[in-house]
Design a protein around this nucleic acid. Structure first.
Lengths: 225, 225
DNA sequence: CTCGGCAAAATTGTATATTATTTGAAGGAC
DNA sequence: GTCCTTCAAATAATATACAATTTTGCCGAG
């Protein structure tokens, strides 16, 4: 999405706070976010709170019903799989285009990001891995040469962030993920569009599955049904 | 996007009014939408106006800069092509999935919509064609079996609406478009995923080109550059 | 005992006032 | 003369007050 949004504004801050609370499982699905209660809780007025609701609605986390209020809408498992499928397809397409158009300079940066992932992995630094991983993927979006596609993919990634956060630390997914990065890099270097698209599709799609496993262990109440 | 938005609310109304004005070429690209002036013009307070700005930002028509205001961001021609490319790819994917999953009942409805297009064409009723055409495409989104993909595709269609409105009446695009519908329907009936994806991709992509032709003739000032 | 309507309470939507931030220009220092 | 600082004006962000809408509970009629 093309929003040059406020970053340190009250509404943005409140949006992130509520997002975090949703992630922590504070709210059941379908619950109404009470304006009065939340404005008291966060010590803000209702105006920025309502703007935060709109941001959350844009993220698909709440539904705004006129004269009724803002209701938490956690995705069902089916829906989450659908979302990861779309994400996988978009990233695969980015990779396919990137294979055709990527420059040597971009390949160099991509290799640096891949090495950054490897370093973080050797240090068992999941936070750093998360950062470098994000950079790796973003570089591919950029290399696609379609700025709009890059933005939309970034946006969907943001929307799925909530459901990807902890999964990198699940099992040996980190190691597998990094090996896939190497393969992706190799295929981009030889400009194999079909090949890299296929690897990327699997690379993303597996996250939906991993998430589901993780979910069963830890937070059975987070999703609907 | 998953917004069960207000429909008859002031903010929604204002959003549509501004969208219309943008479509009419009232605003140059990069111009700031003055809160005070617009609230006077539409006789509404600044609160719903600001909510309308957020909706327009979600549509990608304006950019919100903190403490600066809302600035009109008309897409450049390059960007519009990028957007139509993404749209083409998403519709193609919808069609590919639909080819695998479509039911006989859905095929029946699709055929009805195609016939509706034909009828409208024979009556030279572009408005009716527009409606039936939208239905035809939406049925394919639904038949994809991926609800999230269907929503996102619908959403992008909405964002591109402004740049597609008059183009159906351009040249004999209407006739060509209908022939493509027939072909799409035929390929869906024989469940040819690759085939229907390819036809659909071209069917959408051509719109970007058609738009550009139309633009040169009528509104050279509507896009950037 | 149940169903329908009315009324009051709760809650969202809108308007206005206040505060904080930014920007641009003016004035002084180097 | 140029650059930096500062102050004022403009304007977005927030708070609060008000209006409109919806929901719910109560009362009465059937």
């Amino acid at each position: 999405m093309t929003i040059g949004d406020a970053n340190s504004s009250t509404s943005e801050r409140v949006c992130q706070l509520i997002e975090q609370e949703i992630a922590e499982g504070v709210y059941e699905d379908g619950i109404r976010l009470d304006e009065a209660r939340l404005s008291a809780q966060f010590s803000v007025s209702r105006t920025p709170l309502r703007e935060a609701f709109r941001m959350l609605a844009a993220l698909g986390l709440v539904e705004l019903i006129p004269h009724r209020g803002a209701f938490v809408r956690l995705p069902s498992f089916t829906r989450l799989v659908d979302m990861f499928d779309v994400m996988a397809e978009m990233e695969a397409w980015c990779a396919r285009l990137a294979a055709q158009r990527i420059t040597n300079a971009q390949l160099l940066m991509l290799r640096a990001a891949a090495n950054g992932c490897a370093d973080a992995l050797s240090r068992n630094d999941t936070a750093a891995y998360y950062e470098e991983n994000a950079l790796f993927h973003d570089l591919i979006y950029q290399a696609s040469g379609n700025a709009f596609l890059a933005e939309e993919t970034r946006n969907l990634q943001r929307r799925l962030r909530l459901f990807r956060k902890e999964q990198l630390s699940h099992g040996d997914r980190l190691t597998a993920s990094m090996q896939e990065h190497s393969e992706i890099l190799r295929l981009l270097e030889i400009h194999d569009g079909d090949g890299v698209a296929e690897v990327m599709r699997k690379h993303i799609r597996v996250q939906g599955v991993v998430y589901e496993e993780m979910l069963r262990e830890r937070k059975p109440g987070m999703l609907r049904q």
